[in-house]
């Protein structure tokens, strides 16, 4: 879900950068030096997860997993996503310097929102936890798609159809990310419950 260079307007890029810097500053404040190794290595896991492709019908898409990273790291997801996305840009040229702020927001804002909205319920048991975990995966992608759309629409209203096509194409991914997040959170709760706090 990266936006490439050269598409967004200066205003959107500037606002994105300022907000991403603010979010990262909050995140870094919450990450003491003894937690920074954990955040860095989780950012690596997030980076690797985004390279994992799974089949959907005849095509294949890659995992995003920003919801799970949000549940684990909370505000720390901001600097972690920034690090992972910087590496995406440097190593694969997904995104770039000027859109780094916007791309960080697209990944990190949904992560932090899901942390705030669903973490409490995801830690419980039974159907509530399953629903919360599903919503974490689903909404993390949905909010990301909405933010992508917002960045395009604030650039120019002529992007309306492009935005609709993009957000629509993410719909199946939202559902599958929801399902995968349910299994993943269940797994983490069994294997290492302290990771989710």
């Amino acid at each position: 879900m990266h936006i490439s260079e050269g598409i967004l307007s200066g205003e959107v890029l500037a606002v994105g950068t300022v907000l991403a810097v603010a979010g990262t500053a909050i995140g870094l404040k919450k990450l003491d030096y003894d937690k920074i190794a954990g955040a860095g290595i989780l950012a690596s896991a997030f980076f690797v997860a985004s390279l994992i492709h799974y089949p959907v019908g005849p095509s294949s898409v890659h995992l995003i997993m920003n919801g799970v990273v949000g549940l684990i790291l909370g505000w720390g997801a901001f600097p972690a996503m920034l690090a992972a996305l910087t590496l995406h840009a440097v190593m694969f040229q997904y995104g770039g310097i000027t859109v780094l702020g916007v791309n960080t927001l697209i990944m990190a804002v949904p992560a932090v929102l899901c942390y705030g909205l669903f973490r409490r319920f995801a830690l419980k048991g039974g159907r509530v936890a399953t629903a919360a975990a599903f919503l974490t995966g689903f909404c993390a992608v949905l909010f990301g798609a909405v933010l992508t759309g917002a960045a395009l629409m604030f650039t120019g209203k002529e992007f309306l159809e492009v935005t609709v096509a993009l957000v629509g194409s993410y719909f199946p991914i939202m559902i599958i990310e929801g399902i995968i997040t349910v299994f993943c959170v269940e797994f983490l709760k069994k294997v290492q419950p302290e990771m989710l706090g």
Binding site: A45, V48, A49, I52, L63, I180, C184, F187, L188
Partner: peptide, 10 residues
């Protein structure tokens, strides 16, 4: 894949 990624996080 969910368990695989979960294991990566662990």
């Amino acid at each position: 894949y969910a368990y695989l990624v979960g294991m990566l996080f662990v």
